[in-house]
Amino acid sequence: MLPAVVPAAEGGGEGFETPGVANFWWPLFGGDGAFAFTRPALVLLISVALIAWFFVGATGKLSLVPSKRQFLVEGTYNFVRNTLGRDIIGSKDFLQFLPLLFTLFTLILVNNVFGIVPFVQYPTFSRLGFPLVLTVIVYLTYHAVGIKRKHGVLNYLKSLVPPGLPTWLKPILFVLEFLTYFVIRPLTLALRLMGNMLAGHLMLLVFILGGEYLLLHGDNIGLKGAGILSMAFSVGMTFFELLIEFLQAFIFTLLAALYIADAVSEHH
Rank of each mutant, 00 (worst) to 15 (best):
G195A: 15
Q96P: 10
V110Q: 01
G12W: 07
A49D: 09
L191G: 00
A49Q: 07
G164T: 13
A34K: 08
V110C: 06
L165R: 04
L191N: 04
G195C: 06
T76V: 12
V48Q: 04
L45F: 06
L179F: 11
L209N: 08
N78Y: 02
F114N: 13
F79V: 10
N82M: 10
L223D: 11
V43Y: 05
S230P: 13
K148R: 11
M1S: 10
F24C: 05
D262V: 11
R192C: 09
F94A: 06
I208K: 03
D32T: 09
I46D: 03
S47G: 08
G60Y: 01
G31K: 01
P40Y: 02
G146L: 04
F119V: 13
G211V: 15
T167S: 15
E74T: 06
G227M: 10
A9D: 12
H201F: 15
G200P: 11
A58N: 00
L191D: 02
F55H: 10
E212A: 15
A190H: 00
F114P: 08
Y142M: 06
P162Q: 02
V133H: 00
F252M: 12
T180L: 14
V206R: 05
L62Y: 04
L254T: 04
I46N: 02
I208F: 05
P3Q: 02
L198Q: 02
Y77K: 10
L229N: 04
S126M: 14
V65K: 11
L204V: 11
D262Q: 09
T124M: 06
G236H: 04
M197T: 12
L62W: 12
L64Y: 09
F29T: 11
T180V: 11
S126F: 03
N220R: 04
G20D: 13
G210Q: 00
V6H: 05
G218R: 00
L223R: 06
L72A: 14
Y142E: 03
L104D: 05
I46C: 14
L98Y: 05
A263M: 08
L128S: 06
D262R: 07
S47C: 14
F16Q: 03
F182P: 00
L50M: 12
